[in-house]
């Protein structure tokens, strides 16, 4: 009986499974015909395709109706051409759409924080703030699309596979920067660019220090070796090292994969032996969403700003605690 059972299972695995795949595929295609780009579509202006989830994104936009209307009016000429967002030109694959649904709510707080930062660095006037606010949703969607597509390419083993996932808040910064360059004074844009560059450099430096600290735990380095390794890793910085941050921070047993040429020449014989035998882990793609339970800076609110200015002019106090930063 036992043998009979096993034989039956094996038969099913070999002969029935393949048909299941086709059956399910066929059923799926009945419901959602496979997206094919027609000839006339190729000629036409790129169509923005909003996958499932973007409706939710719009619903999550909690700005007052008046602010949305003002922003919509302002964004008509936000300086960003449609061609800049050519990731929307192609029809989206279902797996990309699914990932976008996952990442949109996770990247929205990053956008809020970045907008609040833009306010502090660029000090935009009311009109400029409305333009930025109006364009911000599109910036977020482009950033989410790029991140989701990067993830699919990375996991799918496709040709031209990227070496690392893009960093989410850097994607948002890039998109916002286009809006800022197109609409704000060049000096305002330059201030934002400089601050972003310093933040990127600071994070890279922190990642290098974190990796060297990990290596020190494993190899008991000398002071000179630590300094040399910091220099070597900074000089030969690899973008994928940006990905393993949370692992470096929170997993004691994680040892990053670093090319031997960047580390071995700096080690002594015994350390080399330990390094050779150590179990290194590849890059862990965890994204860059967490902030250790800190609140999210979220005070880029055009309407509240206007109310605050008007109240200040009238000599009244505005309840600034209404700005939801402490979540």
């Amino acid at each position: 009986m036992n043998q009979r059972i096993r034989l039956a299972v094996a038969t099913a695995v070999l002969f029935v499974f393949p048909t299941v795949g086709f059956t399910q595929q066929a059923e799926r295609e009945k419901k959602e015909p496979r997206a094919e780009i027609k000839e006339e579509d190729k000629e036409a202006k790129p169509q923005i395709h909003f996958p499932p989830g973007y409706e939710q994104a719009a619903a999550a936009d909690e700005r007052p109706a008046a602010a949305k209307a003002a922003a919509a009016e302002a964004v008509e000429d936000d300086g960003v051409e449609q061609n800049d967002v050519d990731v929307f030109a192609e029809k989206v694959e279902p797996n990309v759409a699914n990932l976008e649904n996952q990442f949109l709510p996770r990247m929205r707080p990053l956008l809020k924080a970045e907008l609040s930062f833009v306010k502090r660095v660029c000090r935009p006037d009311r009109r400029q703030r409305q333009v930025i606010a109006g364009a911000s949703e599109r910036c977020l969607k482009v950033a989410v699309r790029k991140y989701a597509m990067g993830q699919v390419q990375l996991m799918g083993g496709r040709r031209g596979r990227p070496s690392a996932l893009p960093v989410p808040n850097r994607l948002i910064q890039e998109e916002l920067l286009k809006v800022i360059r197109g609409n704000l004074d060049p000096r305002q844009a330059e201030r934002y660019e400089q601050e972003v560059a310093k933040r990127v450099a600071s994070r890279q430096h922190a990642a290098v220090l974190g990796m060297v600290a990990k290596l020190d735990n494993a190899l008991v380095l000398s002071h000179k070796q630590r300094e040399q390794l910091c220099e070597s890793l900074s000089k030969h910085w690899q973008e994928p090292w940006n990905q393993s941050w949370q692992m470096v921070m929170l997993n004691n047993q994680y040892l990053p994969q670093i090319p031997d040429k960047n580390i071995v020449p700096l080690l002594n014989e015994r350390q080399r032996d330990v390094w050779r035998r150590a179990r290194k882990q590849g890059h862990i793609y965890r994204g860059w969403f967490g902030n250790m339970g800190a609140g999210v800076l979220d005070d880029f609110d055009v309407e509240l700003e206007v109310a605050s200015e008007e109240a200040a002019a009238a000599g009244k106090n505005v309840d600034k605690e209404a700005i939801p930063a402490d979540n």
Partner: peptide, 13 residues
Amino acid sequence: AMVVAMLENGIPL
């Protein structure tokens, strides 16, 4: 350095 960088995801400085 890492704590500050992580905090800056939510509170850019």
